[in-house]
Design a binder for these strands. Structure first.
Lengths: 346, 346
DNA sequence: GGCGGGTGGTAGAGCGCTCTCCGCCGCCTC
DNA sequence: GAGGCGGCGGAGAGCGCTCTACCACCCGCC
């Protein structure tokens, strides 16, 4: 097809100026005589010039990409690793993260490289990729509190920002949600509706967010005269929500209010409740968490605690940007406030 | 932190050999004395050397990345563009595509750069990105038959492979499904179950796949004495499935079999059917399409036509790889066979 | 013992860009 | 009118790597 791609040199010759001048107009740096600018622009047009990123990166030591890493703590084989990606995106949560990240990156002509780090080798590859200058920094979304990747990155002095506070303290910036307040909002709403026999399905209790949501929920109920709250632990999936709800229901058939730590589990719980002849919200009020797309697509539409994921993800990207540019030196955290969204399920 | 990153030169000095020798052991090319190899490896270890990708790319003219583009035909503003990413990943389908692509790429130490091309500017940026050597080629998943991106890429002579046959002929390779056979499978299963009053919810009829699935479904029914099939057009979303099912049901209350062109719409249809007092599969048998994660998470679990998305995506990546390496010159197509997966809904 | 052919190493020329210096020129200042 | 200064273009030195020469050496062979 196209033989040799035109270089700066070619454009310069075509325009009758020096390479440096062409570079200046391409990058819009320093004043260049408008007439010459025009000359150069025309030459670029004529030659169909496109600057070579590799060459530029070599001297500027900056790429136009950041790594967007979904990481776990696993030791999984490569086959499982493959399924990891599919599984991860089964939760609409990650789509929202991608949306938010791209929202920040695109206007700056930057792009995310998608990486999955569920195995030790995969984690090493992320580190290697960054050290080799494949990307300027990393955005990490961990699915597990013991994820060793943040520490690895911090240790290597590579710019990285986390979604959610890491399990163990790590000198990296992160964005997070005031999960405790989210739990409180759910409890208050259930109480206001007049629920008396309230239970909850938590996320994996190893995850800090799950703990916090539970604590906020429990504390609020306790403060209003409900010292005992039946708890079942789930795994943030529809299936686990079904199992948890079933066990809760068998032990507490008179349940009239349920808080689940995400929407997927709420969806599962609603199904189980209905299968057991309970009407939602008539007999049992159900509140989810996240306000993901399933909250509006499932029936009844879910009352839920909204997590501004897109905004959080965009902020994560912004923080990383600042770290990369060196505008920000020390790790910070930005914590967002949850919001109750009332629909039909409670 | 780390001051200047060590270069090949540094390693060479440390090992007491030349730059070229170090390069050889790093890249495993030509015979190098085992003793010297060891020497070099130790020096690499000591210096913590990581090869600079930009420098390598500059001379090899190959990156380690491909663009994974989700494109539409839209003219949307940037704000809508932002939501596009979120919306796209609400369908588990795309997560599976990512999984399949990564499955092929990762073992080859390649990575996907995620791009969304819903606006004309975004499309130009994809082209520019590839022309500048940001990635070696593109994997395109179009959400719209009139998507201009494939033609743009083909015109620029850039390596690209499509998921699904393009709306208008374009000299690019693609992978696809035998959609017509999928429609046939659904029809046959419904007939076998003894359904007599059968209807279907299609995907957007502008999309070839929707047309094909419908044609296969309709032809099979016709061949078995059902010349007339009520049709409602949907948009591959839960909501559109609900609307379509509702309209179908109001006009044909005696419905006993329904084929929807994807699982999301099946999920919506089931909800509507239940809301109207129909039991699934007792009163109405429902068959979906895709075999996505919702097929097993919703109740009843969906009988559906399986599309081997991961495998298709992996093949797409393989084809692109071959085009990039120059092993494959002419566009090909690889068509996969669908498979009926019987669960509870039909 | 000289000679051809491996084998295993070095030297050095770029790849295409950025960016610092430098020099030219016109204008302002005294 | 001379000196200084700021605006604007050019020259050229790399950035870190690959890869094509090319060379030194050692082996077996006539």
């Amino acid at each position: 097809m196209s033989r040799q791609a035109p270089t700066l040199e070619d454009v310069a010759r075509e325009a009758g100026v020096s390479r440096a001048t062409v570079s200046r107009v391409v990058n819009g740096v320093r004043n260049v005589d408008p007439a010459i600018q025009d000359l150069v622009r025309r030459a670029i047009e004529r030659t169909g010039y496109a600057p070579n990123q590799a060459a530029r990166q070599l001297v500027t030591r900056r790429t136009t990409t950041v790594a967007l890493v979904v990481s776990g703590a696993g030791d999984a084989s490569d086959t499982e690793q493959n399924a990891f990606a599919t599984r991860v995106f089964a939760d609409p949560f990650f789509g929202r993260v991608v949306g938010g990240v791209v929202g920040h990156l695109r206007p700056r002509s930057m792009h995310p490289v998608l990486m999955f780090a569920e195995t030790p080798e995969a984690r090493q590859e992320v580190v290697a990729y960054l050290r080799q200058g494949g990307a300027d920094g990393a955005l990490i979304v961990s699915t597990h509190p013991d994820d060793p990747l943040p520490a690895l990155l911090a240790g290597a002095g590579l710019p990285a920002v986390l979604f959610a506070r890491p399990g163990r303290p790590v000198p990296l910036s992160y964005v997070d949600l005031a999960h405790r307040d989210g739990g409180r909002l759910a409890a208050e709403h259930l109480l206001e509706r007049g629920c008396r026999r309230i239970a909850t399905v938590t996320g994996p209790l190893a995850v800090a967010a799950s703990q916090e949501r539970l604590a906020g929920f429990r504390d609020t109920l306790a403060r209003h005269g409900h010292p005992y709250v039946p708890v079942a632990e789930g795994g943030f999936t529809v299936d686990s929500g079904m199992a948890a709800a079933a066990s809760l229901l068998s032990e507490h058939p008179d349940l009239d209010g349920l808080f689940t730590a995400n929407d997927l589990m709420a969806q599962g719980a609603v199904q189980v409740l209905r299968d057991h002849g309970r009407r939602v919200p008539g007999d049992v009020a159900v509140i989810g968490f996240d306000d993901s797309s399933v909250a509006v697509t499932c029936r009844p539409r879910l009352t839920t605690v909204r997590q501004p994921v897109e905004e959080m993800a965009a902020t994560m990207a912004r923080l990383l940007d600042e770290h990369i540019k060196g505008e920000r030196k020390d790790p910070t955290s930005v914590v967002f406030d949850p919001e109750l969204v009332v629909r039909d399920s409670a």
